[in-house]
Design a binder for these strands. Structure first.
Lengths: 260, 260
DNA sequence: AGCTTAATTATCAAATAATGATAATTGTCT
DNA sequence: AGACAATTATCATTATTTGATAATTAAGCT
C-alpha cells in the first residue's frame, strides 16, 4: 500500500452502517500491523479527516463537512441546479422527490435533492448516495449522453444477467436518447417511478441528470405531459445557469492571473 | 512535506473564493515542481478527492459529498440535533436561524442549521462554515464548558486586542457558565443577536452548542423567556438523544465484535 | 486536416520516508 | 494503587517519493 491509497483504504472502511472503528479493527481489516495504523490515524486525526470518539473508537472528521460546504457553494452543477429543485417540486402535479445526479466513477451520485414535504415513501435518492449505473431514470439520463469508448468501458463493468438483458438495455438507451428523456418504473425503489432529462456541459465536463420521482399510487397518465414539460424546461434552465457560472469562473481566473 | 500533509496542503488551497486550480498554480503556491504535483493530483483524482474541470483546472471531488453524507447519517451530534432545529425555529416567537455547532481545531464549526423560511438577513452560520472561537453566543456556549489546560491552550491561540479584553472575556465566560446560557449582540453579524446553550457528552467527546439567532429589529424583551425556555428544553432533549445514539452504537459494536 | 503550443505522463537514480517488531509510556477502570 | 488496554517512541530495514528531463498526448487555432 502506498501513496494516497494508504489513507483512502482506511476512510473507505467508514460507512453509514459502520461509522466507527478502533485501531485494532482497522488493523485486522487491512491486515496491517497496528503500530502502522496508529501512526497513520494520528496523521489523519491531526488533519481532521478522522476524529477520536468514545471508547477508543475513531470516526470521520469535520474536514468532510468543511469541504462539502465548499463544493456546495462552488460546484457549478450544484450551484446552478440546487435552487430549482424546490420550484420543480412545487410545479409538479403530484408530490415528488427531485434530484440532481452525476457520474461518479462507475456509479451515479446524487449531488442535490429536494423532497416535497408531503412525500410519504422512502426513496434511495439522497444527496451523497451512490446509485447503480444501469437502473433508474436518473442514471439512464446520465449514461444516455455518453458515447463511444467511455460508454463501452462503463457498460463492460456492469454485470448483466444475460447478453439479451444487455442488448435490451442498449436498445432502450438509444430510444431514450432520441426521445430526450427517460422513464422507469420500480427499478430502484419498489412502488416509485422516475422521469429524467440529461444535463451536460462539455467545457465543464459535466455529465449529469435532473429527475423527478413519484409515488406510483398517485400517478395518473394525464400527469405525464406536465412532468415532461417541467423537466425539460428546468433542465434547459439549469444548463443555462451552468454556462453563466462557467463564464464567471473564467472571468475570475482571467483577473487573478493577470494580476500576477 | 510528507505523509498525509502532502495531500492536505493541496486540498487546503481550495476554498469558496477559489474553488479551482491548475497544476501549475498549485505548483507555484506550494513551491513544488509540477511533475510532483501532477503525480499527486493524479492519485487524488483517481480516489475522487479531486476531479478535473474545464480548461485544465481541478476542483474538489465527489468523495467529500459521499463522506459528508455518511457523517450526516452517523454523527451522533448531527443525528440527534438535526431533527430538532426546525421544531425549535417553529416554536421561537420570531423568525430565527438555528444552529448546531462544535469545536473544530481552534475554531467553531456549524454542523447543522435551519433557517425559518421568512428570515430575511444573511447570517454567517451555515453548515460547514468555520466561525471564530471568541465571538458570538454559539461559540461561547461551547468554550464555556471547556476548562483547565484545554481552555488555556485555546485562549492562548487567540489574539485579544488587550489584556483587559482578555480578562473581560474570561469574566463573561464565568458568568455565562453560572447562568447556563449565553447572549451576544452583533459580535459576528451586525444587526443580529444570538442565544445559545451548551451541548455535551463526555463519553462521546462532544463539546457543542445549540443556538438561535434573531434579527435585532424584530426582537422584544418579552421574547427572551420563551427563547430561553426553548433552547434549554431542546438542548436537554438533544443531549438525551445523543445518549441514546451512544448506547445504540455500543450495542452494535458489542454484537459485531462477538460474532467474530 | 495539420501545425503549434500547452498539458500530461513516463523514466530513473538519488534522496527521503514508511514500515513493523519491540519497548516504553500514558490512560482508564476498579 | 495496581492491572490492563491504548497509544507513542525507537530504529534498522525496506520501500517509496522526488524532481530533472524526455516522451507522449491533448487542445487550440488557422
Amino acid at each position: 500500500m502506498s501513496g494516497f491509497l494508504r489513507y483512502k483504504k482506511i476512510l473507505d472502511l467508514f460507512s453509514e452502517e459502520r461509522s466507527s472503528w478502533t485501531v485494532l479493527e482497522i488493523s485486522k481489516a487491512l491486515e496491517t500491523p497496528s503500530s502502522t495504523i496508529y501512526r497513520i490515524i494520528r496523521e489523519m486525526v491531526s488533519a481532521e479527516f478522522l476524529e477520536s470518539a468514545a471508547g477508543s473508537y475513531f470516526r470521520l472528521g469535520p474536514a468532510f463537512i468543511k469541504f462539502n460546504r465548499i463544493i456546495n457553494f462552488s460546484d457549478p452543477l450544484v450551484r446552478a441546479g440546487q435552487p430549482f429543485l424546490k420550484k420543480l417540486a412545487d410545479e409538479n402535479p403530484i408530490t415528488s422527490v427531485n434530484v440532481l445526479a452525476r457520474l461518479y466513477g462507475n456509479k451515479v451520485m446524487c449531488v442535490a435533492d429536494y423532497k416535497s414535504p408531503s412525500f410519504k415513501k422512502n426513496t434511495s435518492y439522497q444527496r451523497g448516495k451512490l446509485m447503480p449505473l444501469i437502473y433508474g431514470a436518473t442514471s439512464r439520463a446520465i449514461i444516455m449522453q455518453i458515447t463511444n469508448k467511455k460508454l463501452q468501458d462503463l457498460i463492460n463493468l456492469e454485470n448483466f444477467k444475460s447478453d439479451e438483458d444487455k442488448n435490451n438495455f442498449l436498445k432502450d438507451l438509444k430510444n431514450d436518447r432520441k426521445k430526450g428523456y427517460c422513464f422507469t418504473e420500480g427499478q430502484v425503489d419498489k412502488g416509485l417511478i422516475g422521469f429524467a432529462v440529461s444535463i451536460s456541459n462539455k467545457k465543464l465536463g459535466i455529465e449529469a441528470s435532473l429527475s423527478s420521482i413519484f409515488d406510483l399510487d398517485e400517478f395518473l397518465l394525464e400527469h405525464e405531459p406536465v412532468i415532461y414539460a417541467n423537466l425539460t424546461s428546468y433542465g434547459l434552465l439549469v444548463e443555462k445557469y451552468i454556462n453563466e457560472i462557467f463564464e464567471d469562473i473564467q472571468k475570475y481566473h482571467h483577473e487573478t492571473n493577470s494580476i500576477r
